[in-house]
Simulated scan of single mutants.
Amino acid sequence: MSFKAVVASSTARLSASEERVMNVLLGDEMSGITAAEVAERAQTHESTVVRLAKKLGYRGYPELRGDLRRDETPMEHSHGQIMRGESGYDLSAFIADEIRALKRLPHFVPQEDLDAAAGTLHASRTVYLFSRTDERPTLDLLARRMRRLGLTTVTLGTTPKDIAERFASFDQNSTLIAMALREAPGQLATLVSEAARRGGKTILISDVPGYRFRPSPDHLITARRGDDTEYRTQLIPAALAYALQLAVFHTDPARYQAARDGIDDLTRLLGGADEIPLRP
């Protein structure tokens, strides 16, 4: 099984030293090092490495190391091209997986965590958004959900120069929302550090529960996606976008309803038509 899949499905509470071990193990090319070497890099004892392995459901570090090796071994071409080869491609199996992922979403993301992130957005003047190219459709959805509340949004680009130009106005009245699905964008750590230096706030949305990003964002929202380790949709991150919009709205319903009404009124002035229900 994939080590990353095991981490994503785990709800074990980790100590500070175990979190450091986890961060080491989630690095590149880790299957070749011993438990003692992991402990040395994490500045802890070897027993902590073994204890973490058992918390994750392994009989010991050697078994965990076997899954690390699987993560690092390229799949055979014939198998690697089969989408949902391990879960079944038919509609019923696919929908069943997505329903399970949606049902366990409140387990991974308590409402109080969403409300805390919403409070940060409510106090912000501008919301900046950042992700890898693969997550851009969901990021665009989230940006629009924020704009529908009347919040000013800035979607950061993909090149260093473009990111720097758009991030230049980030200040203490700003919040950065970033996505790290499967892996973190290369510039994310720098952006989180720079946001903190400027006095702003950060919200990170990830799909690897148990992972501790460094430097730490102000709010970390993590929820596992579908069970298939190779084919995961963005349904869960999209659901979080809507849930976050709702949480922000309910911090001050009068303010945000007025913003929505103002957008609708201006839409009509600009020639937009009201939605017309379809008839069978």
Rank of each mutant, 00 (worst) to 15 (best):
H122V: 02
G272Y: 09
Y128A: 02
A96N: 10
R136Y: 00
L141D: 03
F213M: 08
K161E: 11
E275S: 04
G200F: 02
M22S: 04
L121M: 13
A238G: 02
Q172L: 09
I33H: 05
R224T: 03
R145C: 13
L151Q: 06
S2E: 10
D261R: 15
L25P: 01
R84D: 06
T251A: 01
S124Q: 06
G210E: 09
K4R: 15
R145K: 14
L235N: 06
L181D: 02
R279S: 14
E18P: 11
P209K: 08
A273M: 11
I177G: 04
L240C: 05
R232D: 04
S15Y: 04
G157W: 00
Q234R: 11
K55V: 05
A254T: 08
F94T: 12
E76R: 13
M75K: 12
D134F: 07
E76N: 15
Q234F: 12
D265L: 15
E72T: 11
A36I: 08
Y61I: 07
Y128T: 00
A180F: 02
L269A: 13
L176P: 00
E63L: 10
S206H: 06
A16E: 10
V21S: 05
F249A: 08
A241W: 00
K54F: 00
T175V: 14
A39H: 04
V24G: 03
L91S: 15
E112K: 14
G119F: 06
G85W: 01
A258S: 12
I95H: 08
R69E: 15
R182G: 02
L64N: 03
Y231S: 14
D162C: 05
N23T: 11
G60E: 12
G157V: 10
M1V: 14
I203C: 07
V24A: 02
D218W: 10
F94Y: 09
D71G: 13
P277G: 12
L278N: 01
F167W: 08
A259E: 10
I95E: 14
D264Y: 12
E46F: 06
L151M: 14
H77G: 15
G226Q: 12
T153Q: 01
V6F: 01
E63A: 14
T153A: 00
F3E: 06
R145M: 13
T158W: 00
L26M: 14
G85A: 00
R41V: 00
M1P: 10
V248M: 06
G271R: 10
R212E: 11
A143E: 03
L149W: 05
D252F: 04
R268H: 05
S78I: 15
Q81E: 14
T159K: 03
I203R: 01
M83D: 08
Q187D: 13
E29Y: 01
L220C: 06
V49K: 03
G210F: 10
T267K: 14
L151S: 03
L240N: 00
L220T: 09
D218T: 12
I95F: 04
V50H: 13
I236W: 03
L91Q: 15
T155Y: 01
Q245D: 05
F130L: 12
E165V: 01
L68P: 03
D265I: 14
